[in-house]
Every structure is written in C-alpha cells, then in structure tokens.
Amino acid sequence: MRFDIVRRRKWFFLLSGAITVAGLIVTLVFGLNLGTDFKAGSRVQVQFTQTFHTSAIAGAFAKANLPLGASAITTAGTQNSMAVIRLGYELNAQQENTLNHILKSSFPGYVGTQYDSVSPIIAQEQSQTAVWAIVFASIGIVVYVALRFEYRFAIAGIIALLHDAFIVISVFALLRIPVDLPFIAAVLTIVGYSINDTIVIFDRIRENLKGAKLKSLADLEQLVDHSLWQTMTRSINTVLTVLFAAIMLYFFGGDPIHNFCFALLVGLISGAYSSIFIASPIWVVWRSRSLRREQKAA
C-alpha cells in the first residue's frame, strides 16, 4: 500500500497553514532582527581559536572607548568561537585600528576581525533592494514556469516557494538571528532552487496527463499521486546531495557564513517538503474546479 499524499492534502495544507500563521505572528510580534546591512551602524565579527567570555569582549570595547548597547554581543560559529558585536554607530578606520590592537593584546586565541559599517542611507537602499530582488526573482520564475507549463502550475509552484521563503524568515525571526545581506542571497537561492523539484514533479504530471481520461476528482487525485510517487526517489535524492553540501558548510565552513548556511538548510528542507506535499496538491484543487466546470458544460 502506498501512502496517499494527494487525498491527505487537507492535513498538509493545515500543517503548512498553521506554521505560516505561527510564523506570521512571530514575525509581526517580534519583528525581524535586522542586522547592520539594513539598520546602519557597525558590525564587528571577532574570530578566536576557542570560546571566550562576553565580559572580556565588553572590557575590550570599554578600553577602546566604544560604548556598547544592551545585548550587543552574541556568539556565533561552529565552535562558538566567534563574537559578533553590533553597534548603532559607524566605526572609522582609526577606531577599528585601536580595537584591533586591544583585542590582539588581550586575547591569546585572537585570529582576526571583520568590520562592516553601513550608513543610514545605504541601509535604507539595501533594504529596498532586498525586497525588490525577491519580488523580481519570483516574478521571473512565475513567468518562466507559466511559459513552459501553464499558469496554474506556475502559481501553485510560487505559493510553495513563498511558503519556503516565509518559513526561513519566521525561523530567523523566532531565533532572533540577525538578518543581513547574505541572508537575502540564501532566500533567493532557495527561491531559485526549491522550485526545481516542483518542476520535476509537474513535468511528470504533464506527461501522465497526455492521453489520460479524467472523469472525476478521484482520477485526478490518483494521477497526481502516482506522479508524485514515480518521482519520489529523485525528489529526495536531488535535495539530499545539496543538503549534504549545505550541512558540511554549516558544520565545517567558515564562521562568517554560518548563519547563511543555516538559512539554506531550513529553506532546502522546507523546499523539499513543499514541492511534494504542497505544490502538486494545490494544483489538484485548482484543476479539479475547472474539471467540474468542463463536466457541467458537457
């Protein structure tokens, strides 16, 4: 017996709906933890060879005469060996230099520092650009899928996509992880990549539709379910290989891209789920409506 995905679609819609609503509430209540790229100020990322004490970092900043806001220091990286400090003001070259000297002399395991400073005007531009980039990428993909398949496939695919992007955003809002420019790159990658599996499935549905005589909703459900199971191995395997890469990058890759890889991981898993359990069932619901209309007309 095969697990019937399409007939159980209500449960999956309910699950995804619940996650989306929960994510919406979390994002609205807490808001995204906007990072330096979108909020102006400076971000200081200090890499050590081992874990460190937050109080020692605060001490170094005090010594450099740089005031810190509340909860400005967070730890990051695979071994929690990176300190990320966010400042509401922009550091100049001289201040960076002073801080470098203090950090170097007070921490034996000091590796190096990355400074990113963004002025308010650039922060505002970058926020707008990020939103437009996601909008344009989505439109581009809808148009392409609509041209290659039909509009119903395109819209069903894009709903699944936005669902994935939304889950990543919600997770970042919930865990209070700062959202910076690389995060946008991760979301765009998910938008571009997770539709791949959806396309493979849609392609199979389209192929099976050729010559198929659909008399009822049950026929349609069965055809789509059959297509889903025919493509199941490749849906899983294609995501697995990319997931392998993302997992390795998350655990062993450079600490500055740790959060970026986390966004990718969440998005890839969500994308694999939504390709199978959301995109095609949405198409079934939509297609069945026009099926009923066709039957009434006949």
């Binding site: 922009e90 960076e96 520092t113 990355q114 062993f252 890759g253 450079g254």
Partner: peptide
C-alpha cells in the same frame, strides 16, 4: 565621505578559506 565599509583582517580571511575548503 565613507557611506559603507567592510574590512577583514588577513588571518581571519585565511581561516575562513581553509574551513570552507575543508567543508567543500
């Protein structure tokens, strides 16, 4: 006038390079 800046210490860059190559 500086609008935005990003500066990375050379040792930090090398550490990230090696870690990411290993992950790769």
């Amino acid at each position: 006038h500086e609008l935005s800046s990003s500066s990375v210490g050379p040792t930090l860059g090398r550490a990230a390079l090696h870690a990411t190559l290993l992950a790769g």
